[in-house]
Design a protein around this nucleic acid. Structure first.
Length: 435
RNA sequence: UCCUCAGUAGCUCAAUGGUAGAGCACCCGGCUGUUAACCGGUAGGUUGCAGGUUCGAGUCCUGCCUGAGGAGCCA
């Protein structure tokens, strides 16, 4: 028999007031005076302070506690007591301490550190309350997405990670070998999801994505995770409704399940509470007019928006905002042109509030085989490599739409973070492959 | 790839071209309610690397390396 079945989790400690319990955890910090010691304990589920008074515990227990170093692992026995002075409302009057391992001098201290130092120690940094809160919220966001999509009749489909060629043919891919052939790490599962939508109707993927871009900003990772839903028989307007319901559900779920974590992060909840469907929609044309009014007078129709433009547009709204009908030229080859106005496509980017930028890019896809072939010519894509994709329009093509939601940008926005590097356990960035 | 900034003790940072320092952490001692506890003490250095200017360089100059912020590109 293991020991875990008798351990109490710190997040359940309120159920054990007055009882003597055993917890397994780590010493997060220690404060002491001559005759009293305060042990700051964490077990991954929460934090609690253990208290030892010298003349109330066995001398061996006192001496054992005195030896403890920061991040030493240990079992602690003690009696749970409600205490208004404790941040969590509960304390543990320690009766016994058993050291599992006495930690060496711990590199991360309870003070400010530089980014480079913390990233070098990411494997330890994730133990801190703030990083723990972010990773918990990330997990709850994933749960909210899967719960919502499953409930809406979507089926999870996993596209390949090793691919024979580019999905969109624009960004730089990570090259590798597939025995004697060339292969690339996926930059999007979308084209495969279009195939899946013709088989299973409403589908979504959730997986890692790789971009070998020399991007070096607070919004970029080399390896990141995307949710890519694809829906048969759904048009542009239906696509937007599915997106706004999903995002509103994510925010609602986090507000309902992560109050403690949001508090740890100091997140402004009022900004999140405003995130209710429907979201405002403006066309690309209207966005350009808005930019002209707001000081970007040299912005030309036909240009794509940069980060400062997205931020300015987002500032005009208190909820995420859809920008629709971009010029065909600046968007991907598979997007369906507006039948009434072929110079723009039936697409939308969802821009998060507070300057977090684009969190969703989506569109209605081209379903006409001849038009799709034409787009291949314009974009100079090799038809042989995409023969299977073109097949989808030959054998029962239907109107369909889809989108990709960037998980890390969504986590950064909901958590109110400065940089996406904190939203993923071990970020892969331009200058970082370690740890 | 381009622009801007930075690199000094384990960490965070000071030091007018003139003896390299402080706080925190570690270690030792003190303290009965601490919240990044506090008080006293010990120890801790190839100032990113290579050149150059100078009587003298952490400081000025040149090149390189590493990192950060941003741009482009994107989610």
């Amino acid at each position: 028999m293991g020991v875990t079945h008798v351990l109490v989790r710190i997040d359940r400690i309120s159920e054990h007031v007055g009882q003597e319990i055993k917890i397994g955890g780590w010493l997060y910090n220690k404060r002491s005076s001559g005759k009293i010691q305060f042990l700051q304990l964490r077990d991954g589920t929460g934090f609690v302070q253990g208290v030892l008074v010298k003349n109330q515990v066995e001398p061996e227990v006192w001496e054992t506690a005195k030896q403890l170093t920061q991040e030493s692992s240990l079992y602690v026995w003690g009696v749970v007591r409600a205490d208004e002075r404790a941040p969590s409302g509960y304390e543990l009057d320690v009766t016994k301490v058993e050291i599992i391992q006495l930690a060496e001098e711990y590199p991360i201290q309870k003070k400010e550190h530089g980014v480079d130092f913390l990233m070098d120690h990411r494997h330890l940094w994730i133990r801190s309350p703030r990083q723990r809160a972010i990773l918990k919220i990330r997990a709850e966001i994933i749960r909210a997405i899967q719960d919502h999509l499953n409930q809406q009749g979507f089926t999870l489909v996993d596209p390949p990670i090793l691919t024979p060629s580019a999905c969109e043919g624009t960004t730089n891919l990570f090259h590798t070998k597939y025995f004697d052939e060339d292969a690339y790490l996926t930059q999007s599962g979308q084209l495969y999801m279009e195939a899946a939508a013709m088989a299973l109707n409403r589908v979504y993927s959730f997986g890692p994505t790789f971009r070998a871009e020399k991007s070096k900003t607070r919004r970029h990772l080399i390896e990141f995770w995307m949710i890519e839903p694809e829906m048969a028989f759904v048009d542009h307007e239906g696509n937007l409704e599915i997106q706004e319901q999903l995002v509103a559900h994510i925010v609602d779920h986090v507000l309902n399940h992560c109050q403690a974590e949001l508090k740890t992060l100091g997140r402004d909840l009022s900004a999140l509470e405003k995130v209710k469907a429907p979201f405002p929609r403006i066309t690309y044309d209207e966005a350009v007019e808005l930019l002209h009014r707001e000081g970007f007078s040299d912005f030309q129709w036909g240009d794509d928006f940069g980060a400062p433009h997205e931020t300015k547009i987002a500032e005009s709204f208190d909820r995420p905002v859809f920008i629709t009908h971009y010029p065909t030229e600046v968007k991907a080859f598979y997007m369906k042109p507006d039948p009434n106005r072929p110079e723009v496509v039936l697409c939308a980017d969802l821009i998060a509030p507070e300057g977090y930028g684009e969190i969703i890019g989506g569109s209605q896809r081209i379903d006409d085989p001849e038009l799709l072939a034409e787009r291949f010519e314009v974009h100079r894509l090799p038809k042989e490599a995409y023969a299977w994709y073109l097949d989808l329009r030959k054998y029962g093509s239907v109107p369909h739409s889809g989108f990709g939601l960037g998980l890390e940008r969504t986590v950064a926005w909901i958590c109110g973070l400065e940089h996406v590097r904190e939203t993923i356990p071990f970020p892969r960035m331009l200058n970082r492959l370690y740890p």
